[in-house]
Simulated assay, not measured.
Amino acid sequence: MTRTYLPGILAMAAIVVASNILVQFLFGQWLTWGAFTYPLAFLVTDIMNRVYGASAARRVVMVGFVVGLVCSLIGTQIMGEFGPLVTLRIAAGSGVAFLVAQLIDVSVFAALRGGKWWRAPLVSTLVGSSIDTALFFSIAFAGSLSFIHPATDVSWAAETLPLLGVGPMAPLWVSLAIADWSVKLSIALIALIPFRIITARLTRTA
């Protein structure tokens, strides 16, 4: 890796670390504060992809993946009120979701990079964010995947409640996933502004 990629590497590492910390703090009934920082990882990946290419973006993704693994490993060793702050299922879900979603984001962006400036970052982030949410919440909390780590108690996530408090009955983790996904989609739209500004500035100075 070259010094050229260092800002992207540091930004990705900071986002992953911050998200792993902030996910411990609730925001309302369905979200944590980490839900608002984690989607910025897609912004970093897309900026690197636009300015330096898919190879550079994948390198930054791998750094984020390694940092995330370290954070999860540390979290499994810290005991909270109800056990480890990070269970093995959450660690597995987080790692798999991040790596798969980010790499798909890179591929989709690369395929669309020749179109209008907003198409590649918007579509790639929407696709990546959707996959990220589906993989993480399913692996971490779905009862049908309890074989991943049978010792992890996720019965609380399977509690049946009105969807987001107002809809049809569904497991709690589904409401959490939909709320998280909604934030990701909202930030994907908002992030088009800094994406445009930052990439325009970097491509002028490159």
Score class of each variant (00 low, 15 high):
residue 1 M to W: 08
residue 2 T to I: 00
residue 2 T to D: 12
residue 9 I to A: 13
residue 15 I to L: 12
residue 19 S to T: 15
residue 22 L to M: 10
residue 22 L to S: 08
residue 25 F to D: 10
residue 26 L to M: 05
residue 28 G to D: 05
residue 29 Q to Y: 05
residue 29 Q to V: 06
residue 31 L to N: 12
residue 32 T to A: 11
residue 34 G to V: 00
residue 34 G to T: 01
residue 38 Y to N: 03
residue 40 L to M: 07
residue 40 L to K: 00
residue 42 F to D: 00
residue 44 V to F: 04
residue 45 T to I: 12
residue 46 D to K: 09
residue 46 D to P: 01
residue 46 D to H: 09
residue 46 D to N: 15
residue 48 M to N: 11
residue 49 N to V: 00
residue 52 Y to L: 10
residue 54 A to K: 06
residue 59 R to E: 15
residue 59 R to G: 15
residue 60 V to K: 07
residue 69 L to V: 09
residue 76 T to A: 01
residue 77 Q to I: 00
residue 77 Q to E: 11
residue 78 I to T: 15
residue 85 L to V: 09
residue 86 V to Q: 14
residue 89 R to Y: 05
residue 89 R to C: 02
residue 89 R to G: 01
residue 91 A to D: 04
residue 91 A to R: 13
residue 97 A to D: 05
residue 97 A to L: 14
residue 98 F to G: 13
residue 100 V to F: 07
residue 101 A to L: 03
residue 105 D to P: 00
residue 105 D to H: 02
residue 108 V to C: 09
residue 112 L to G: 08
residue 112 L to N: 10
residue 115 G to H: 08
residue 116 K to P: 04
residue 117 W to F: 09
residue 118 W to Y: 15
residue 119 R to F: 01
residue 123 V to R: 12
residue 124 S to A: 14
residue 126 L to F: 09
residue 130 S to Y: 06
residue 130 S to L: 13
residue 132 D to L: 11
residue 133 T to S: 11
residue 133 T to H: 07
residue 133 T to K: 12
residue 135 L to N: 01
residue 139 I to A: 00
residue 140 A to H: 02
residue 146 S to Y: 01
residue 146 S to A: 15
residue 150 P to L: 12
residue 151 A to T: 11
residue 152 T to H: 01
residue 161 L to G: 00
residue 162 P to H: 04
residue 164 L to F: 03
residue 166 V to T: 07
residue 166 V to F: 10
residue 171 P to M: 03
residue 172 L to W: 04
residue 173 W to C: 01
residue 178 I to V: 14
residue 178 I to H: 01
residue 185 L to W: 09
residue 186 S to T: 14
residue 189 L to H: 10
residue 191 A to N: 15
residue 200 A to L: 08
residue 200 A to V: 05
residue 203 T to R: 09
